[in-house]
Computed example of a mutant assay.
Amino acid sequence: MVTSAQSQETDLRIHAEEVASTLLREEEAYVADKDAKLDQLLSAYSGLEDCDEALEKVEKSLLSFQVDLTKVSGEIRHINDTSTALGIKLENRTDLETSLHKVLARILLEPETIKVLTGSDVNDAYLKALAALDKQASFCRRPQAKSLASYPEVVVEMDRLVLSACGRIRSFFLEIIGGFRAKNTNVHIIQNSVLLHFQPAHAFLHKWHVEAGREVEQEFMHTMRWFYDEHFDRYHRGLSRYQAPMLSKTDLMCGEVDQVKSSFFGGSSSSSSTSPSPEAFTLTNRMKPLINHPQEEDVIILHVAERNHQTFTFERLFRSFHVALMDNVCSEYQFIE
Score class of each variant (00 low, 15 high):
S120N: 15
F65Q: 07
K71E: 14
D35Q: 10
N123F: 02
D35L: 13
A125P: 01
K89N: 03
L133I: 09
L117T: 07
E49W: 01
D50F: 00
E59C: 08
E112M: 13
K115E: 15
G47H: 04
L48W: 04
T82M: 10
K34P: 01
S99I: 02
A32L: 06
L62K: 14
G87V: 00
L23W: 09
K128P: 00
A54H: 14
T22C: 03
E28K: 15
V116P: 05
R77G: 14
D35K: 12
V122H: 08
T84A: 09
V116M: 10
A85M: 07
Y45L: 12
K89I: 03
L86P: 00
F65H: 03
A44P: 01
K57H: 05
P111H: 07
I88K: 13
S73G: 11
Y45A: 12
Q40L: 11
K89V: 01
K128M: 05
A44M: 09
S120L: 05
V67S: 12
S43T: 08
K115Y: 08
R25P: 00
D33E: 14
A132L: 10
H78G: 14
V116S: 11
N92T: 04
D52M: 09
L133G: 06
D124K: 13
G74V: 04
Y126G: 06
G47I: 00
S83L: 13
D121F: 07
K102H: 05
D124V: 09
L41Y: 09
S64F: 02
A85R: 15
A44K: 13
H78V: 03
E26R: 14
